[in-house]
């Protein structure tokens, strides 16, 4: 058994979800190698080489890996596979992994397994279907198992101080059929949604994008990230990168506060593994209360400012 993890990073630092994928790979057993592809990403290589559980790092340094486009990364991973014959190849089920993993799988003529939440054995995985309303146990009959890992389902691997060896990755040609032009990232000093300990999300009950300022104030008081339901995204209140749910991000923070969110199935799929769930909604019949540890039936426009004030007072007191 041997696993290759394709590391995700933004050019500056390693995406934390990659550490969760390392833990998943450890559950399979065997040697774990990591591949870092990037343009001048030696800092990332250093970081990856210290992750516990990884025994070797392959590094491919080339301008064409900027933006981690799947057209460029896939031939590189195929070249590594030709040389090392891994039994398992994986990445995180983030925008990067979801984009890249199936492309690689098709090139290996393998049926990929998306967004796994558990590993039963070296060829058998569990994953959610129907927005988390059912859990399927799936056995792969392919020689090479190609899968993506849901970060919230696995702990993050530790980062130590001893670095393992780094090798040059085998060279591969990029087809140059796509190019990365740039990005417009939502600027925020708040924690990143998928790795935050506390998340506060707003739904259609907020009534406008401007009213999300109520949540931002509470979030900044608590050091929380801010998310949203699909309804709030559909209504144009906030951008899609804030969406928590089946078709958005999956989060599992210590504390999740749902404000003005009714609790549609597809939203619950993205947050019901949170440790503690608080719901604030003026409708006592809202389905969100069926999963909430603490439910407050009250108008959010009154409750949230009061909550912010009392949390502030508690912190200073």
């Amino acid at each position: 058994l041997s696993t290759l993890i394709v590391a995700e990073h933004n050019g500056e630092s390693l995406t934390k979800a990659t550490l969760n994928a390392v833990t998943a790979a450890q559950a399979i057993g065997g040697e774990i190698s990591a591949l870092v592809a990037g343009a001048n990403a030696s800092k990332i290589v250093e970081e990856v080489s210290k992750v516990k559980g990884i025994s070797k790092v392959l590094y491919a340094d080339n301008e064409c890996y900027k933006g981690l486009l799947p057209e460029a990364i896939t031939p590189l991973v195929l070249a590594a596979q030709n040389q090392f014959n891994y039994t398992h190849i994986t990445a995180t089920a983030t925008a990067f992994g979801k984009n890249f993993i199936p492309r690689l799988a098709a090139k290996l003529d393998v049926s990929p397994i998306s967004d796994i939440i558990g590993i039963t054995s070296e060829d058998t995985f569990t994953r959610t279907v129907y927005a988390g309303n059912a859990i399927a146990t799936v056995k792969s009959k392919d020689n090479v198992k190609v899968f993506s890992v849901r970060a919230t389902a696995f702990d993050a691997a530790d980062v130590g101080s001893d670095a393992v060896g780094v090798e040059q990755a085998p060279s591969a040609e990029s087809p140059n059929t796509s190019s990365w032009e740039g990005q417009e990232l939502s600027k925020s000093d708040r924690p990143e949604l998928t790795s935050a300990s506390y998340v506060i999300s707003g739904g259609r009950g907020l009534k406008s994008g401007d009213n999300f300022s109520l949540l931002y104030e509470l979030a900044d008081t608590m050091g929380a990230a801010v998310g949203a339901s699909r309804a709030a995204v559909d209504a144009g209140y906030v951008p899609n990168d804030m969406q928590v749910g089946q078709t958005g991000k999956i989060v599992a923070p210590e504390l999740y506060i749902a404000v003005g969110i009714s609790g549609a199935i597809q939203h619950l799929a993205g947050m019901k593994d949170s440790k503690t769930i608080v719901a604030v909604n003026k409708d006592p019949e809202a389905p969100i209360f069926q999963v909430a540890d603490y439910g407050l039936v009250e108008d959010l426009f009154k409750a949230v400012p009061e909550l912010t004030e009392k949390v502030k007072a508690a912190k200073s007191g």
Binding site: T94, W180, E181, G182, Q183, S186, E192, P239, D241
Partner: peptide, 9 residues
């Protein structure tokens, strides 16, 4: 649509 916002390719 990417995790941190928008990307142009």
């Amino acid at each position: 649509e990417v995790d941190g916002g928008l990307e142009t390719i």
